[in-house]
Each structure stands twice: as structure tokens, then as C-alpha cells.
């Protein structure tokens, strides 16, 4: 029985899990940055209308 598929399988699952674990916070950061930009925009707009 060839063991190669098991080795490839183990390493690719490992790579996918660890890659996802590394990328997830970056995606989160992107959405937070977007939220903050929007927040700043809203605040600036309200400041403009007030003055």
C-alpha cells in the first residue's frame, strides 16, 4: 500500500488549517479598518454640518 496519499493529505490539511488560522485575523482587521473609516467619515460629516 502506498503511503504517499496519506502524507500529502496530512500535510495539505495541516497547511489549510494553519493558513486559515493565520489569515482569519487579517480578514477581521480589514473589516474593522473599514468600520473605523466609516465611523470617522460620519463624524466628520456631522461636524461639517454643525459648523
Amino acid at each position: 500500500m502506498s503511503h504517499t496519499p496519506f502524507i500529502i493529505g496530512a500535510y495539505s490539511i495541516g497547511a489549510v488549517v494553519l493558513l486559515w488560522c493565520a489569515i482569519a485575523p487579517l480578514l477581521r482587521k480589514k473589516s474593522i479598518t473599514r468600520d473605523i473609516r466609516r465611523l470617522v467619515q460620519i463624524e466628520e460629516r456631522s461636524r461639517d454640518t454643525n459648523t
Binding site: H3, F6, I7, A10, I13, G14, L18
Partner: peptide
């Protein structure tokens, strides 16, 4: 994540 990797790699090692 490391625990999941350990489990999947361990079970794929266990098959052969």
C-alpha cells in the same frame, strides 16, 4: 488549530 492538525495528521498516520 494545532489540536485539529494533530488529530487529522494522527488519524492519517494511523490508517497505514
Amino acid at each position: 488549530a494545532f489540536t485539529i492538525v494533530t488529530l487529522t495528521a494522527g488519524s492519517l498516520w494511523g490508517r497505514p
